[in-house]
Amino acid sequence: MKFVLLRPLLEVLAVLALVLGVARWVAGWFGKRTHTYRLTAARQLRLLAWPLLALGTGLSVVPALAMGPHGSASPLEWGLAAALVAVALALGAPAAVLHLRYWVLNHATVLVLQPQENRLEVYQHGQRQYFERRDIARVQRVTCRTRATFWAPYNYVRLLLHDGREIVLTSLLADLEPLTVFLRSVPTDRRTVAWAWA
């Protein structure tokens, strides 16, 4: 009974991952390498796959126990189900919350990075944020301390401009290490935290 909901979810995720992978591979053959980064479904799926799988697996036991015949589940079974749900929430919920936070910050953000042409542009809600590299007073690079968690890939860069503006670029847009390398001449504060809340 508990696999009735989980199996179709896993099949849909597998087909979606396969279709997105093939589409990306074909686009790589025929497309020009882009230096424009925005939120894409493929990147979001790659970051959210394991947290959603953990949440789906853990939460799937609750309907199975609840829909069983009245009184058929013992207190031990409910206790084990509660423990499994708690583990699933501990593994998947922090990553899902970070994902939602990063999506709110960067859903309307576009990053253009072309190091060979010394070009860095950020667009928010279709409007270009005008600044040059010399306008950046400081860069904060925040990464996750623990690499064995589902929220480890979530990190961000905060650009602190001389005029007081702050621009936050998250790992939902792109891998941020090339941006950090591009801005290596700007004073950079690197921090590692347990949970990279921006």
Score class of each variant (00 low, 15 high):
89 L>I: 03
83 A>T: 10
87 V>I: 15
94 P>T: 01
93 A>N: 10
101 R>I: 06
92 G>A: 04
87 V>Q: 10
65 L>K: 12
82 A>G: 09
69 P>A: 15
80 L>E: 12
72 S>E: 14
63 P>I: 05
61 V>E: 14
86 A>W: 00
100 L>K: 08
67 M>V: 12
98 L>V: 01
67 M>A: 13
88 A>V: 12
92 G>H: 05
64 A>F: 01
74 S>I: 06
67 M>S: 15
60 S>A: 14
60 S>W: 08
83 A>Y: 06
76 L>H: 07
71 G>F: 09
66 A>F: 13
87 V>K: 10
80 L>S: 09
75 P>M: 09
98 L>C: 03
97 V>R: 03
99 H>G: 13
84 L>D: 11
78 W>A: 02
91 L>W: 15
59 L>E: 02
65 L>W: 06
92 G>P: 14
74 S>V: 04
65 L>S: 10
97 V>I: 07
75 P>I: 00
104 V>W: 12
82 A>F: 02
67 M>Y: 13
81 A>N: 02
75 P>F: 04
85 V>Y: 05
90 A>Q: 11
68 G>N: 08
84 L>I: 13
102 Y>E: 02
100 L>D: 11
65 L>N: 01
102 Y>T: 00
92 G>L: 06
64 A>D: 00
85 V>D: 03
100 L>C: 04
95 A>N: 07
90 A>R: 13
74 S>C: 06
104 V>K: 15
81 A>D: 01
78 W>K: 07
89 L>V: 12
79 G>P: 04
74 S>Y: 10
100 L>S: 11
104 V>C: 11
99 H>R: 06
66 A>R: 06
91 L>P: 12
74 S>H: 10
82 A>I: 05
89 L>N: 02
76 L>S: 11
81 A>E: 06
93 A>Y: 06
95 A>R: 02
85 V>G: 04
81 A>K: 00
87 V>S: 05
60 S>T: 12
79 G>C: 03
78 W>S: 06
65 L>G: 13
64 A>Q: 10
61 V>F: 15
96 A>M: 13
59 L>N: 05
70 H>A: 15
104 V>G: 12
92 G>D: 02
72 S>K: 11
62 V>H: 04
63 P>S: 13
102 Y>D: 00
92 G>W: 04
95 A>S: 01
79 G>Q: 09
77 E>K: 11
74 S>G: 07
66 A>Y: 14
96 A>R: 06
95 A>T: 02
101 R>A: 09
99 H>C: 01
96 A>N: 03
70 H>D: 13
62 V>C: 04
83 A>Q: 01
73 A>D: 07
82 A>N: 08
63 P>V: 01
92 G>Q: 02
99 H>P: 06
87 V>A: 15
101 R>M: 08
85 V>W: 12
